[in-house]
């Protein structure tokens, strides 16, 4: 008696199978037809589609970011970082700069119709100016250091070499992080000081209709605006909201994964980049109008005193209020223009 009596029944079958396996062609066939009890459940296929979907599992180590096995989104983020972000930032900045140049060439410097009166009225006190210059300097530093990280590798690195560029980038990154503090301080001050004068009102509609008369060479009919006109209000809100967005996303970027996972971080980074691009473009416009773009404008933030004529022309309502409160002298005759103007 055999122990495995059915062995002999199986034997021919086994030989046949063995022969089958000997043929290379059979191997492929075999691979396609696993035995029914082999765990080739179709769901396995579902697991392995790394190109199409992220794979998240579990890990025993505390860092739950590492439970993400494959995140093909990394490649999307890479293409944003590599292919889009530089163009967004650079492109916007260039467009704005070119537009302003064109504006300057066509329209020229916006001058005062009545010329300078020589008499000054206090527009921004030292606290106002401190707030402005705090946020302004920090923004410039932030933008510059941010640009080093974005454009340094293609533009600077070939010029100065790896070691120097790393030192620059490292310093730039540290500076970028540290200047976020004065930036936020400035932002808070600015909001506290100026928010009440930046609430949109009816006169803004009129200002927007004519773009404050900037477009016409003769200045057009100036709308009687308060302390800030609609353009300035727009700038204010751009800085406040954009700055806030940058500050928040920046903070999140400095505390990576404290509040969100990998995809959150990628999105945050994208938001930070896009906001930065927008704000840089806006600030270029702001700088233009505050310096070469408009006669007498820089004084407001320079020494805080603006020319009465400038105040009257650009912020008539505010000027009248200053007069009423006694902060400014009553309007002199328009004809009293100083010689030489």
């Amino acid at each position: 008696m055999r122990r495995h009596s059915h062995f002999f029944l199986l034997a021919p079958l086994l030989v046949a199978l063995a022969l089958l396996f000997a043929m290379p062609a059979a191997q492929a066939q075999y691979a396609n037809e696993p035995r029914p009890d082999a765990p080739t459940a179709p769901d396995q296929v579902q697991i392995y589609n790394p190109d199409e979907s992220r794979l998240v599992g579990s890990v025993t180590i505390p860092d739950q970011n590492l439970a993400v096995l494959v995140q093909p989104e990394g490649r999307d983020w890479r293409s944003f970082r590599r292919d889009y972000l530089p163009w967004i930032i650079g492109g916007l900045a260039i467009i704005v700069a070119v537009a302003l140049l064109a504006f300057f060439l066509i329209r020229g410097k916006i001058r005062l119709h009545s010329g300078l009166s020589g008499r000054k009225v206090l527009r921004f006190n030292s606290i106002d100016r401190f707030a402005h210059w705090t946020i302004a300097t920090s923004f410039l530093v932030l933008a510059l250091t941010g640009l080093i990280l974005t454009f340094g590798r293609p533009l600077l690195l070939p010029l100065i070499g790896n070691s120097a560029f790393t030192a620059l980038a490292q310093a730039g990154m540290a500076i970028h992080n540290f200047f976020s503090i004065p930036f936020v301080v400035g932002l808070v001050l600015v909001v506290a000081l100026w928010i009440k004068d930046n609430i949109p009102n009816r006169s803004d509609v009129a200002w927007v209709k004519t773009m404050g008369g900037m477009l016409s060479k003769d200045g057009g009919p100036h709308v009687k605006t308060g302390r800030f006109n609609a353009g300035q209000k727009g700038m204010f809100w751009s800085i406040v909201l954009g700055g806030l967005g940058l500050a928040v996303t920046g903070f999140l970027l400095m505390t990576p994964f404290a509040f969100t996972g990998i995809w959150g971080m990628q999105v945050i980074h994208i938001i930070h980049g896009v906001l930065a691009a927008l704000l840089i473009a806006a600030i270029i416009g702001h700088i233009y109008i505050g310096t070469v773009g408009m006669e007498g404008a820089f004084d407001a933030m320079g020494n805080g005193q603006v020319d009465e004529n400038w105040a009257r022309e650009h912020h008539a309502a505010w000027y009248e209020e200053q007069v009423r409160k006694g902060y400014a002298d009553s309007p002199p005759n328009m004809a009293q223009r100083p010689a030489g103007e």
């Binding site: 070691s163 120097a164 620059l168």
Partner: peptide, 8 residues
């Protein structure tokens, strides 16, 4: 523009 390697 040589900057000495600081992270050696």
């Amino acid at each position: 523009m040589l900057i000495k390697r600081s992270s050696a």
